[in-house]
Nucleic acid binder design. Structure first.
Lengths: 190, 190
DNA sequence: GTCTATATGCAGATAGAC
DNA sequence: GTCTATCTGCATATAGAC
């Protein structure tokens, strides 16, 4: 795979740059020109790697979305509702911590939703699946609101620049605690 | 003031339309053409009421921001830290419920921040003030994370289309409960 | 107060040279 | 794989008629 290293590298740098700019200015507020300038290349060079801006948006969020999908699938296979919630929560928090800004992006940026709805990436089913697990069967309004607040709160707090200086373990434990409190789950050990 | 009723009405409709479109597509994803089309007027008519798009953005978020400012001010005048938190929380939740989509918008849309930073509206100081109250003195990381998650969770859950069908009282109580759990405040009565 | 018409610039996107 | 050059369209914004 060494032969394509150069290509992969530029592509990877491009996606990292795009994510950073998307986070700062939103997807619609980021132009291909901005991405190209930050990379030190021209717009046309960007178009060599991706045919459209939507393709870039998809490529930026795809890895995270796939991971979320697989976590939802795993959680659904747990037998007890409590275990489903715990699995979903731990997986989601871990995803947020490892990707930080990314999850906040696709939780709140309308540009992401717009880009994804064309090629149907299953973002909606992901989110619905996660929410179904977290609310449990026959949820009352308070529980539905709590689950929504948990997902949004964890994603946005995890991606917040104000909290970027915390190390992964600190952030992970704190976000887990947020989820446990909102969803009424006990702490793991004591 | 009957003389300016027509003007006020168009202006008000314009701001309501802008808020709806900003919520759906983000500030940067909304063009003046879209706003004009929804209103059934031309772009030039929109420019009669506002000189720039940034002015529209400011006018959309201004009332909510002013309210938040005053709530922060009130809360700061409470003597006990616990009472400060309770006042801040109740005021913020009430603001979210009464405006729904608006608070979610300026909590998460980078376009809003961009538009406000020119004419300095005090958004930053508002947010910092609120966060200072909610974290209290000498907060540990878990508390800072919890406060961030509370604000983001309440704002985004309150503005979520999935939860739009709940009546104000149900939503308010549920969001208050979210804040109380995350910030370790007891319920009001039992 | 709302219109038509228009200026200007930058967006996304393509063709083809190197 | 990256470039220059260019196209098309829509963005914000303005001037001035009605």
């Amino acid at each position: 795979m060494a032969a394509v290293a150069g290509h992969e590298d530029t592509r990877t740098r491009l996606l990292a740059t795009a994510l950073r700019l998307f986070t700062a200015h939103g997807v619609e507020g980021t132009s291909l020109q901005m991405i190209a300038d930050e990379l030190g290349v021209t717009k046309a060079a960007v178009y060599y790697h991706f045919k459209t801006k939507d393709e870039i948006t998809e490529a930026v969020v795809e890895p995270g979305l796939r991971e979320l999908e697989s976590i939802v699938g795993e959680a659904e296979r747990e037998r007890r509702p409590g275990a489903r919630i715990d699995h979903m929560l731990a997986g989601f928090v871990d995803l947020v911590v490892r990707h930080r800004a990314l999850v906040a992006l696709f939780s709140s940026d309308p540009g992401v939703a717009r880009a994804l709805e064309k090629h149907f990436f299953g973002k909606e089913s992901c989110m619905v699946g996660m929410m179904t697990i977290l609310t449990g069967p026959d949820p009352d309004p308070a529980r539905v609101v709590a689950a929504h607040a948990a997902v949004a709160g964890i994603a946005l707090a995890g991606g917040s620049p104000d909290l970027a200086h915390y190390d992964d373990d600190t952030l992970r434990e704190s976000l887990l605690e947020v989820g446990r409190k909102l969803l009424g789950r006990p702490r793991r050990r004591g």
